[in-house]
Design a binder for these strands. Structure first.
Length: 232
DNA sequence: GCGACAG
DNA sequence: ATCTTGTCGC
């Protein structure tokens, strides 16, 4: 889908998409999804997955898995071009859409406000949150070493996101709004999705799923979870 | 020119 | 992201 895009064209496309960004509080949240991608080194096959959990219970209800071929390379600032097409393909397998989707990467905490979460959100017309494991853009401020302590991440005097300490003695994660949600509400939601691990439940489960999918333990398609599987 | 740089 | 052994800490 984006394989033929040059980085120059990709940059122009991001600026174009950014003009369509909208942010407002999500009224009711009963289900939340986590999305992630996995792939073998030097392979063009992407293993995409999305899990849907109840909110704020964090109980796995269903998940979808699908593969997608792409040769778009990874480059800081352009992650969306490599992952969004695959994520949109899994997205189609989900008939009952979640209220918000958490992506493994940034939202507006990006030089052109178009991280993978914002990129996916606009194309899917879906509320999204970006939760990255390391900082891509903005003035870094390290939060205190206490669970759920946070600091603002700014750029040119504007608060684009937050650094959040999800676990003591572990590096913070970086939260920002993707689309159709505010940065403040994104932080509140990620806090409620945080369990006993550094990575919040939605993306943590999605990460485990796509890894099992890639290694053949799970198959492509939409899957309903019957037995209240609190495992993983 | 130099350093930074999601997954 | 993936590959990959040992090691430190709760």
């Amino acid at each position: 889908m984006y394989d033929h895009y040059s980085f120059e064209e990709a940059t122009a496309y991001q600026i174009q998409l950014a003009r369509q960004l909208k942010f407002h509080p999500v009224q009711k949240i009963e289900t939340i999804a986590g999305a992630d991608i996995s792939f073998n080194k030097n392979s063009s096959t992407m293993y995409a997955g999305m899990v849907i959990l109840s909110y704020p219970d964090m109980i796995l209800k269903s998940f979808a898995l699908e593969t997608y071929e792409t040769n778009f390379p990874y480059k800081p600032g352009f992650l969306g071009f490599k992952e969004v097409p695959a994520l949109l393909k899994v997205w189609e397998l989900i008939s009952s859409k979640p209220d918000v989707v958490v992506l493994d990467g940034n939202g507006t905490l990006h030089p052109r406000r178009m991280g993978v979460a914002s990129h996916f959100g606009i194309l899917a017309n879906q509320a999204t949150i970006g939760c990255a494991k390391s900082l891509l853009y903005g003035e870094n401020h390290v939060p205190e070493n206490r669970k759920l302590s946070s600091t603002e991440i700014n750029s040119h005097g504007e608060t684009l996101g937050f650094a959040l300490r999800t676990k003591i003695n572990s590096a913070p994660v970086f939260v920002s709004a993707g689309y159709l949600i505010t940065a403040d509400q994104s932080l509140e939601i990620i806090k409620k999705c945080t369990g006993n691990y550094r990575i919040p439940e939605p993306t943590r489960m999605a990460h485990n799923m796509v890894n099992d999918f890639r290694t053949g333990k799970l198959k492509a398609g939409f899957h309903e979870v019957q037995a209240p599987l609190t495992l993983f």
